[in-house]
Simulated scan of single mutants.
Amino acid sequence: MTNRFLSAASMAAIALTLSACGDDEVEVPPTMMPMPTPTPSPTPSPTGFDVSACLNQVIPGTGGVTVAGAVVPDTLTINLGAASGFPNGRRLEDPVIDVTLGVIFLDLAVHGAGTLAGVPVNPAANDVPFQAGFPYLAPAQGSPPITVSGGSSFVFNTAPVGDFVRVDRMGMPAVSTALIGSDQKDPYNDASPADDANGDFVPELTEQLTGLTNALADDLTDLGLTPCATPNT
C-alpha cells in the first residue's frame, strides 16, 4: 500500500517537473469574471386619485341629489316626489351598506347604485321574512323564541332630551363608520348636522374617501367595475 502511494506521488512530481522544464510558460486557469449586478427597477410611485367626481355625481332616482348632498349633512332624508328606497328614505329590505359603498366608489354613469348588492356573497334577503304590519321586523329568534304580541302596548321613553348622551351618529349608514377617521369620531359624534352643513367635516370626509379609493381602486378595476375617482396626473 505504501509503495503504491509513493509511486503515485513520484509520478506526479516528475510530471510537474517535466512540464516546468519543457515550457517556460505555465498555463494559468482563466479567472472567473464576476457577473454584473442588475440595477433594480425603481419602485413605481403609487397612483393617487381625485374623488371630486365621486362626490359631485348625481345618485339616480333621488331627484338630482349628489353624493355630497346625501352625506352632508349626515341625515336620512326623503323626497316624496321620488321613488322610495335608500338613499331616498330607508326600507327594511334595502341593502343600505352596499348602496352607500356603491355610490361613493363607482361611476354611476356606468353602474347602478345597487351594483355591489348583486355580489354573490351578499344575502339576497333577510333570513326570516318581515311582517306585513307593525312592528314590521321579523319575529325575534332564540331558544326559546321571544314572543311578540303587537306594538300597541309599547311605552316610549318620555325622559327629557338632556338625559340622553349621543354615542354614535348614524344618519346615513356607513358615513360615520367608514368616512370619519378614528381621531375624529368623538368630535363628529358630539357635533350636529348643522355643523356638517357648515362644512366642518367636509375635509375629513374627502380625506378618508381618498384614502379608501387609493387602496381599493385597483381591486374594483380587477372586478370589472369602473371607479368614479380619476387618477391624479
Rank of each mutant, 00 (worst) to 15 (best):
A9P: 04
P139L: 04
D107W: 03
P34H: 05
D23T: 13
P29M: 05
P87T: 00
A217P: 06
A197R: 04
L76T: 06
V51M: 09
D94V: 07
M170S: 11
D183P: 13
P38V: 10
A194P: 02
G151M: 09
A125L: 02
L80H: 10
A124I: 08
P203Y: 07
N122V: 12
A53M: 04
D98T: 12
P87K: 01
T100A: 12
V155Q: 08
T62Q: 00
C228F: 00
L6W: 13
D183F: 04
A109V: 07
V26H: 13
G142H: 01
F201S: 08
A217M: 12
G199A: 02
L92T: 10
A194F: 00
A109S: 08
N214W: 07
P129V: 00
V99G: 09
A70F: 06
F5V: 11
D23V: 11
Q131V: 10
N122I: 13
V202T: 08
T43S: 02
P95L: 02
L76N: 15
F105S: 01
P135H: 03
N198V: 13
G142F: 05
P87V: 04
G61L: 01
T210N: 10
P129Q: 05
I104R: 06
L106D: 07
N126S: 14
Q208F: 15
T17V: 12
V67K: 03
E207M: 09
G142I: 01
L179D: 01
N79G: 00
E204W: 11
G133N: 15
C228Y: 09
A82Y: 03
T39R: 11
T37F: 15
D127H: 08
P44V: 04
T17W: 05
